[in-house]
Amino acid sequence: MSLFEVKNITVAFGGVKALNDVSFGIDKGEIFTIIGPNGAGKSTLFNVISRIYEPSKGEIYFENQNISKTKPHNISKLGIARTFQNLELFENATVLQNLLLGRHIYKKTNILSEVFFTPSARKQEHEYRLKVEEVIDFLDLQHYRDTLINGLPYGVRKNVELARALCTDPKLLLLDEPSSGLTNEETIDLGFWIKDIQSLLGITIIMIEHDMSFVNKVSDRILALNYGKILASGLPEEIKNNEDVKQAYMGE
């Protein structure tokens, strides 16, 4: 049984179908990459999964549970975390505060215990911090703990966003163009990290990516979208040699 399944999802904006009857399933522990030219509906798909867009048809299943009607803020509680194409970090907060927000779903304190900052609130902060420090060590962010986000270089910001998603202890991680804007070395590092997230942390990954050499290196399976429809899906080798995909990318 798949960990995650998308069934017949259709999204229409006015008359334009951004996604048209898209279905696929992902097994636990996979790195599943979605490729496609601009406007193919990749980010729309992510936004449907995190319940920002309402699909006009179709369902999404996570661990055999239908999440098509779940409230957007409850998605992360189920164990789905995501990053954004154009970084959505909390700009005027420190890296540490950003990462601590990744633990928000585990909050047990109420407003009264917070106003008086009771020992239980303090204990909770310590617990949050322990997990955050694990992620900081994992992604080499030790230097930046107390730096404000708007003082960080782009590559580090991307990293912080990935770290923030990891802090939620997800089962499924959605990465929207993780390598865009990174230098060659940073992209290589990212490749290792993604592999580590898969093998060491056991997290399943869905990724939107453009850099094909990067995609071929890390992905287990690839899905190609064009104009909201599935062009092809399969192993990296198969996609590489698929005529439809070549045509969509290269033209005639």
Binding site: H73, S76, K77, L89, F90, L101, H104, I105, R164
Partner: peptide, 11 residues
């Protein structure tokens, strides 16, 4: 700073 990110983190 970002409603959309806050929401995706369970706020």
């Amino acid at each position: 700073d970002s409603e959309i990110a806050a929401q995706s983190l369970g706020v």
